[in-house]
Amino acid sequence: MVAAAAVLLRPDASAPSSAPPSAAPAELIVGDGRTVTLLSLGGDDTDALLDRVAAELGEATARVEDFWGTDWNREITVVATDSPTQFAAAAPGAPAGMAAVAVADDVDLDRRVATGQRIVLGPDAHRMSDAALRIVLAHELFHYAARTDTAADAPRWLTEGVADYVARPAPSATTPSPVPSALPADADFDRPEPELSRAYDRAWMFARFLADRHGPAALRELYRRAAGPDRVPAEDALREITGAEPAALLQQWRQWSAGPR
């Protein structure tokens, strides 16, 4: 099982067990002719949530295709769960309390094939606002799209930062932006709130900085070079793509974060 997590909602956990769907899966077409299967494992909350997902998924797909291109899985499956037990069964090994997670049963990076891919929505996902749901869907859909181009040991500041770059709108010019001290370590993405949100924010800000200074194509190339199956160290990829030393880039990032954008 391969997983990529999004937003932490609450820290409860349950033992896994199987649960049948409450209704036959619904289907729709989005983006570049992709087939979406929406599967509800619960009741009123999950059915209503999937109605909202159906309304938002077209825009989320467009965001991913605009950044990443169209060469990725033609079928998208979204599963809505109604309890921690259902979530644990649909996303084995994923941390409890997540808003959503993109998982796959198996990934063959050499053949660029992922089996059993799905986005699993947590039991509290229906509480999200439309804006939050829109971000979570695009974030997880990027992980879904990039699954066969992402090494298991890819740096999480890069995988999560790029996913958030695709998903999150830029803040307004008047929104305060804390000046970062350093990129988050992989372990920072396993910490409880509020440290978890700070890790995502720093990764997102660095991805935004790179795209702003060097262009979205450079950010995409950095992902492929430093997070792909034949990845090189991120420091080397940054030098190749930006022409700057990593230490100098971090200093530029801090200056960029402190100034108007």
Results as ranks from 00 to 15, higher is better:
H143Y: 11
A145H: 07
V53F: 06
G228M: 09
E27T: 13
S18N: 08
D230R: 13
A163Y: 10
E245H: 14
R111F: 11
L183Y: 10
D45V: 12
R225F: 01
E27N: 02
W157H: 14
E56Q: 15
H126G: 02
D44H: 13
R112P: 00
L8Q: 11
E195C: 04
T242W: 01
T242A: 07
T85A: 14
A94T: 06
H126R: 12
G33Q: 09
G58P: 01
A218K: 12
A234S: 10
I241R: 09
D186Q: 01
F142Y: 14
A91M: 08
A207I: 04
L8E: 12
R225Q: 14
R118F: 05
A152D: 15
P180S: 03
A226S: 13
L219M: 08
R147H: 03
A173F: 09
L28Y: 00
V78F: 09
G42C: 10
S40L: 00
T35R: 10
V120N: 05
I241C: 09
S14P: 02
E235P: 00
A23T: 02
R213T: 13
L249N: 07
Q255T: 14
G33N: 11
E65C: 08
R34H: 02
V7Y: 15
A170C: 00
F189I: 06
P192Y: 07
R134P: 01
A163D: 03
A207E: 10
D32I: 01
L158R: 04
H139E: 11
R112Y: 01
L250N: 03
T61P: 02
R224N: 01
D45W: 10
L133I: 06
P233Y: 02
L39I: 12
G33E: 09
V179R: 14
A131M: 07
A227W: 06
R74T: 12
L41A: 03
A54I: 03
L38W: 01
L222P: 06
G69R: 10
G97L: 08
Q117S: 13
P169G: 03
L249I: 07
G69C: 09
I76P: 03
I76K: 05
R127Q: 14
D190C: 06
A227M: 10
A244T: 12
R202D: 15
G97E: 12
E56C: 13
A88C: 08
A187T: 13
